[in-house]
């Protein structure tokens, strides 16, 4: 995946469902449409949860990167 520049970052490491969703929702409120949020997680289930959350909320899921079990998700705020 090509390098994506995030406008904001959210650390969800160690958080369990549904806390990351709650935190993402709160963080998204502070962004303007088109801005990109980076979410850090160490939860395998986030690979399913974050795209599903994006489908439901209409935000754009851009993908994730993975290194040393650290997952980095990128979500673009909807218009």
């Amino acid at each position: 995946m090509t390098e994506i520049k995030a406008d904001a970052s959210l650390d969800c490491k160690g958080l369990l469902c549904p806390k990351p969703m709650v935190e993402m929702f709160k963080k998204m409120r502070g962004l303007i449409p088109g801005q990109i949020l980076e979410v850090l997680s160490d939860d395998e289930l986030a690979k399913k949860n974050i795209p599903d959350w994006c489908t439901k909320t209409g935000n754009e899921y851009l993908g994730f990167t993975e290194e040393n079990k650290l997952l980095r998700f990128f979500v673009k705020k909807r218009a």
Partner: peptide, 11 residues
Amino acid sequence: FNIANGAAASG
């Protein structure tokens, strides 16, 4: 509360 917060966080 899990369901409620998950749903609310999904807009």
